[in-house]
């Protein structure tokens, strides 16, 4: 049995752990607020971009002149999964659930006889995916050095993806990230970005589409907008991911703090019981010693 001193040390250690998890929870909460407002601030841009592009796209859809980024390459043999995860752990199932979704997708595609390539954004996703899909990972980047995610970071990833697309390295690109719903709910989401699907397109199709004047020509505008749209979607995914990360970390740390409290309570109880048992034992020894005399 552990001595009383050992038990005291253990209780002190658990208390120290609890303090750390408590502090991490508070830090995550304050960062979450910032990340959440950043994600919300990015929504109008992404939504309007989607609406405008959907409008223009429905005008050119079906024609052969539609750029490849919009219409696809016409085949769907090679799929690229752009998997965005966090840079750090200690955030519950956040990274794992994104990776699980990516893995399910990849396995399903492979089962269909398609070729899968993976582009990892974020260190944790790479570490986890490496175990199963070492060969499929064609590219990876991490945002470790980035403190505040800016549009330029997303643009860099977007440019790389387009470069790969133009080299004919893949046909369909799907973005896998975690959508921020609330502090306790983050939904791993897969969104196809090449060729893009428009949420607004179906609703816009019902309304009469305004006949726009284009300046310069339609294809030139599309040529500029499509890569931009890609970066915007990636940017949005990164921001949503960031908010989700802090949300997940906050609830994970909240759990950890509560568990530590529970452990401290149990350890203190055992400690006190042991202490009392020892006092009783010593008393018995003294009394029986006195009686023997």
């Amino acid at each position: 049995m552990a001595s009383l001193k050992d038990m005291r040390v253990r209780i002190a250690a658990t208390k120290a752990t609890q303090k750390i998890t408590k502090a991490m929870q508070m830090v995550a909460a304050s960062k979450l607020r910032r990340a959440q407002s950043a994600a919300e601030a990015a929504r109008p841009y992404a939504e309007r971009m989607d609406a405008v592009l959907g409008n223009i796209a429905s005008g050119v859809a079906g024609s052969n002149s539609a750029p490849k980024l919009l219409g696809g390459t016409g085949s769907d043999k090679v799929h690229l999964l752009l998997v965005c995860t966090g840079e750090r752990g200690l955030c519950g199932a956040f990274n794992t659930s994104i990776v699980r979704l990516a893995r399910e997708r990849a396995n399903a595609l492979i089962a269909e006889g398609k070729q899968v390539k993976i582009f990892c954004v974020g260190k944790k996703g790479y570490e986890q995916l490496r175990r199963n899909f070492e060969k499929q990972i064609v590219e990876r980047t991490d945002l470790r050095a980035v403190r505040v995610i800016g549009f330029a970071d997303a643009e860099k990833i977007g440019k790389r993806v387009i470069e790969m697309f133009e080299n004919g390295e893949f046909d369909v690109c799907t973005l896998v990230y975690s959508k921020f719903k609330s502090v306790i709910a983050q939904i791993p989401t897969a969104q196809q970005i090449i060729p893009p699907t428009f949420e607004a397109a179906s609703s816009a199709a019902a309304a009469p589409i305004a006949a726009y004047e284009y300046e310069p020509e339609e294809d030139e505008i599309l040529g500029d907008l499509l890569p931009r749209n890609l970066s915007v979607q990636i940017f949005r995914a990164l921001l949503e991911n960031n908010a989700s990360f802090y949300g997940a970390q906050m609830s994970a740390m909240d759990n950890a703090t509560r568990n530590a409290g529970e452990m401290i309570r149990k350890q203190t109880l055992t400690y006190n019981r042991t202490r009392q048992a020892m006092i009783t034992k010593e008393l018995i020894e003294i009394i029986s010693g006195a009686e023997a005399l």
């Binding site: 223009i56 305004a210 300046e215 310069p216």
Partner: peptide
């Protein structure tokens, strides 16, 4: 400031998309 030159937009402008 459009790519093809500056243009002013007033109420009732024709639908336009410009870079």
């Amino acid at each position: 400031p459009g790519t093809e030159g500056d243009f002013g937009v007033l109420a009732g402008h024709a639908p336009t998309v410009s870079l």
